[in-house]
Design a protein around this nucleic acid. Structure first.
Length: 425
RNA sequence: GUGGGUAUAGCUCAGCCCGGUUAGAGCGCCAGGUUGUGGCCCUGGAGGUCGGGGGUUCAAGUCCCCUUACUCACCCCA
């Protein structure tokens, strides 16, 4: 056993897996940047108070916060998600609205790790601040939908709901509390405990014992104001217009208290585990105001990178093969030719690698094969004496000897020219 | 925070129940077979304080206790 290992709930993302993470982020960035979203990089830690706005009753705040006191006696927390930080940034800098941003990066929650759940976990997401337009909600949702589609995921279901604006939400919570209190005896022990903290959360209990009480609970739809109802109808109409399939589920309650009106969640039907939500979001009007800014509408979503990749594995999509390089230079003389030729190839825009430590030709050829290179460029004693090199096509095994000075031109004839990275020597 | 499972080579795992010479396999890695050529094949090699600590015993990878880590589930969430 090595002296040190990764801390609980963290892990090394090694190659080639790390390349797949980058590829996923690239797909996401391309998707949302096509819609005018710009990248934002908020800090990974902030004043604890920023995150307390996520809700006093949420587990994220009460028991999962990764917090500490720094050397300046500031009470700091590693961000458990990015929405609050983005809203804090909005309140601090007051950008022109609507402010459309996207992000990618790690978040931290002090939880017990299990499949698809880590203490440090990555999310990609978007936030839009400064608009109440229901069709913006539809755009935001459809961007996430398009992202999953571009990865090749087919078994992802979109679930939507409206929790109403603050007053309706409050009235609904009161009604729920009254309902469940009157049936407290029917509830499971866990749900009875949850009821005291947050009646909304009892709604999405999956315990069979709670089924009857949940089924007879009041529905949010009968509490919605005319404005909230028409907002929700417009969101659904927008999704219809875009051809995004969805299922309305009035039991959909999301974990953070700041959601108002639109809420949604993406569930992977190919993940059987408990962690099958690959993304979620909603509208959070009022959060900016809570953080000391002006009253500002906001909507966004976050997608879990780990779980999305788990879903890709389950569906057998978005596999990223080894990247392979253009050429691998094999040099069985003193290595100087390989040193120069790889540099020349790279300068000309090709990807090139070589072997070190003066290994045998057989060994270097094995390395060339393993590198996934299209060509091996071989320099033995004969080539070195004649200032030539033998270019071997590693898939067809055909090879031809060309002058070293003509190597780049020779590759250009088969691989095409590349954009030079720097001036050739 | 609560409960179950696991821990032996770089990786995946046998061996443990029923304690007994130098702890194994496959894959991977290195080398040779082919002194100038990869994949397939053959041969060989390197690589282990059997997670850590304590106990029982003539003897512990194997039995007992403690501990740590990992893992799965609950809770909750991405």
């Amino acid at each position: 056993m090595p002296s040190f290992q990764t801390s609980p709930g963290t892990r090394d993302i090694l190659p080639p897996h790390a390349g797949r993470w980058r590829a996923l982020t690239d797909v996401f960035a391309d998707t949302v940047q096509s819609a005018g979203y710009e990248c934002i990089i908020p800090p990974m830690f902030e004043d604890l108070g920023v995150f307390l706005r996520l809700g006093e009753a949420t587990d994220v705040v009460t028991k999962e916060m990764y917090d500490f006191v720094d050397k300046g006696d500031r009470h700091i927390a590693l961000r458990p998600e990015q929405t609050a930080g983005v809203c804090r940034a909005f309140a601090q800098h007051r950008p022109v609205t609507p402010w459309k941003v996207w992000y990618s990066g790690p978040n931290f929650r002090y939880e017990k790790p299990q499949a698809g759940r880590y203490r440090q976990f990555d999310q990609v997401g978007v936030e839009v601040l400064g608009s109440d337009d229901a069709l913006l909600d539809a755009e935001v949702i459809s961007l996430a939908w398009q992202f999953f589609a571009r990865l090749g995921l087919a078994k992802v279901e979109l679930v939507v709901n409206s929790l109403g604006d603050a007053p309706e939400r409050g009235a609904y919570i009161d009604a729920l509390r009254a309902h469940f209190e009157s049936r407290r005896g029917e509830l499971s022990e866990e749900s009875a405990a949850t009821l005291a903290r947050n009646p909304l959360r009892v709604l999405d209990s999956k315990r069979p014992a709670d089924a009857a009480a949940v089924a007879s609970a009041p529905r949010i739809s009968s509490f919605l104001s005319a404005e909230s109802a028409s907002h929700f109808a417009a969101v659904l109409a927008g999704l219809d217009a875009l051809g995004v399939p969805y299922r309305v589920n009035e039991m959909l309650v999301r974990g953070l208290d700041y959601y108002r009106r639109t809420t949604f969640e993406f569930v992977s039907l190919s993940l059987d585990g408990a962690q099958n939500a690959v993304g979620g979001g909603g509208r959070y009007d009022g959060l900016v105001e809570d953080l000391g800014g002006p009253a500002t509408g906001g909507v966004g979503f976050a997608i879990g990178v780990d779980r999305t990749l788990l879903a890709c594995d389950a569906e057998g999509v978005f596999g990223t093969g080894a990247v392979g390089i253009d050429a691998f230079v094999v040099d069985v003389t003193d290595g100087m030719a390989a040193l120069r030729l790889t540099e020349d190839l790279r300068a000309a825009g090709y990807t090139a690698d070589r072997a070190f430590d003066g290994r045998s030709m057989k060994s270097q050829m094995k390395a060339a094969d393993r590198s996934g290179a299209s060509f091996a460029v071989i320099v033995g004693a004969d080539e070195a004496a004649a200032a030539t090199c033998t270019v071997r096509d590693l898939s067809s095994s055909e090879q031809v000897t060309v002058p070293q000075s003509g190597l780049v031109a020779h590759l250009a004839a088969t691989l095409g020219t590349r954009t030079p990275r720097r001036n050739p020597r």
